[in-house]
Every structure is written in structure tokens, then in C-alpha cells.
């Protein structure tokens, strides 16, 4: 009897550590954040002193005040995601089908950037795109950009930085799903009168859709909430929502606005992702 009982309970027991961890470090902070988001400053209090007044208008005020950064967050994240997809797809395709015995080395190279810190690599980009770097001078000499144009402290640099930083998250799921495709299905497509492009459109791409969906989500979600790239590679006019939340929280100690913005961002990402998954129709895919 006791052994049957323990059998039933075992799965729950195994779940317990994970649940406790998530409860402490995810649920509690979220609840706390939710409470903070509707607080207002205590009358005559010091900076950073707030009381709960359930002022839901905090959300509307925060949104209206920062709608520009909001829009920028999503536009930058979408640009970075599309750019990463455009770079990662051919890369993953080549590794999966054309790399022969170099496959493992190439895969290690894809994750090699993780061996150094995210922050350091982003700072490195500042140097690469800087006035003294090896990108700007040749472009100036070739007349592709004018003498006065700079690449750092621009929206362009922010998007490039995010593309670079999230590229492995795009490449690896793409590789995983391309690698699973039986190359003989592509041969069969050629055999059945499809040229290279049609084979890609009708066979390879549909079969790699799970990778495309996973890769774009793994890139888009962190990119939309990112603030490091905008902080290091951007300028005051290329701030993203992450930067606003950061400064509200740590500099201005305006906790309610920071919390309200965080929730709004989370909700927006959730809605977009849900719509996207619906459209991509993952349940139709193998």
C-alpha cells in the first residue's frame, strides 16, 4: 500500500525542487512586481517611497510617455530577427548538408562566442564599428559612407549588435531541424520535376519550419527586452524599452513605472508570439 502511494507521489516529489525554485525566484518577484506597478508616491515622502493605491492608470501613463521606445524595441527586435534568420539559414543549411567532415568543428565555432562574456563582445563591436576600426575607414575610402557618417552610436549599430549576439540562438535550432531532413526527400523532389528553388520552397523550407519558429522566437523574445546593445552601441535617440526600464528602476527610482512597463512589454511579447505561432501553424509540422 505504501509502495503504491510512493509510486503515485514520486513524480510530484521530483517536481518539487523545480517548483520551489520557480516559486521563490519567479512567482514571488512577479507578484511583487505586479503590486509595485500600481503604487503611487507617498505624499511628502522621500524619493523611492511608494504606497499601494491600485492606480492602474500607471500603465496608461507609462505607455503613453514611452510609446516611442516601445515601438523601437519591437522594430529593432524584428529587424535583428529577420537579419539573423537571413544569415543563419544559409549557414545552418551549409553545415547540415555541405560541410562533410568539418561539421563538428563548425558547430563548435557557432557556440564559441559563448566562451566570452556577452558584455565584452558587445563592447568589442563598439571598437569594430568605431572610427579607428577596420570597417569605417575602408567604407569612407570607397565612398560608400560619407566622411561625417559614423557607425557607432546609431540604430544600425544596435540592430547589428543584437543580430550578432543572438545569432547562435537562431542557428542552432535551424541546424537541428535541417539536419533531421532526409536528403533523399530533396533528391526525390528533384526527381519529381522540381528545380532547386522549388525543392527549397516545397520541401526543405516546410520541413525546417520547426527550426525557423524556434530560432525566431529564441531571437525575438530576448531581443525585444534587450538593453545592453542599445546602451553600448546606441545613442539617446535609439533607446529601447529595456533602457527605459533600467533607468527608471536604478537611476530615477521610479519603481511603479518600471514595473508597469515590464508588464506591458511581457504582455505585448506574449500576444505577438501567440499570433505568430498560430500563423506558423506548428501543429501542422512534423
Amino acid at each position: 500500500m505504501s509502495s503504491i502511494l510512493s509510486k503515485v507521489k514520486l513524480p510530484y516529489l521530483l517536481l518539487l525542487p523545480g517548483f520551489l525554485f520557480l516559486f521563490t525566484f519567479f512567482i514571488l518577484p512577479i507578484v511583487n512586481l505586479a503590486q509595485t506597478s500600481t503604487q503611487t508616491p507617498i505624499a511628502n515622502g522621500d524619493t523611492g517611497q511608494y504606497e499601494q493605491t491600485f492606480r492602474f492608470a500607471n500603465y496608461i501613463d507609462a505607455f503613453i510617455e514611452n510609446r516611442e521606445q516601445f515601438a523601437r524595441s519591437f522594430i529593432f527586435a524584428i529587424c535583428a530577427t529577420l537579419l539573423a534568420l537571413a544569415i543563419a539559414y544559409p549557414l545552418a543549411y551549409a553545415i547540415a548538408f555541405k560541410s562533410g567532415r568539418f561539421k563538428n568543428i563548425l558547430l563548435v565555432l557557432i557556440i564559441a562566442p559563448f566562451f566570452t562574456s556577452f558584455l565584452l563582445r558587445t563592447v568589442a563591436w563598439k571598437q569594430i564599428l568605431g572610427e579607428e576600426g577596420f570597417v569605417v575607414p575602408p567604407l569612407r575610402t570607397l565612398g560608400i559612407i560619407s566622411e561625417s557618417t559614423t557607425l557607432t552610436s546609431t540604430s544600425f549599430a544596435v540592430v547589428i549588435g543584437m543580430t550578432y549576439n543572438f545569432l547562435p540562438f537562431m542557428t542552432l535550432p535551424l541546424y537541428a531541424s535541417l539536419e533531421r531532413i532526409d536528403p533523399r526527400t530533396m533528391e526525390a523532389s528533384g526527381d519529381l520535376y522540381a528545380n532547386g528553388l522549388t525543392t527549397f520552397r516545397r520541401v526543405t523550407l516546410p520541413l525546417s519550419m520547426p527550426g525557423v519558429v524556434a530560432g525566431t522566437l529564441l531571437t525575438f523574445i530576448p531581443a525585444a527586452g534587450d538593453y545592453v546593445n542599445a546602451a553600448i552601441l546606441g545613442n539617446p535617440n535609439s533607446k529601447m524599452l529595456g533602457n527605459v526600464i533600467e533607468s527608471r528602476y536604478f537611476r530615477i527610482v521610479d519603481y511603479p513605472t518600471a514595473a508597469a512597463l515590464s508588464f506591458t512589454l511581457m504582455a505585448a511579447i506574449l500576444i505577438l508570439v501567440t499570433l505568430y505561432i498560430r500563423k506558423a501553424g506548428t501543429e501542422e509540422l512534423v
Binding site: E187, A188, D191, V286
Partner: peptide, 20 residues
């Protein structure tokens, strides 16, 4: 000639049906 330019079709050893 490329495979798709030939009036020839193959039944592959492992069938190679399109899973999607």
C-alpha cells in the same frame, strides 16, 4: 541533364516520401 529535366522517375530504396 538535371534530374527534373528528365522524363524519368525513381522509386527510392527507402521510399523518400515527403513527411509534411
Amino acid at each position: 541533364k538535371r534530374p527534373y529535366q528528365r522524363p524519368i522517375n525513381t522509386v527510392f530504396q527507402n521510399y523518400a516520401l515527403f513527411p509534411h
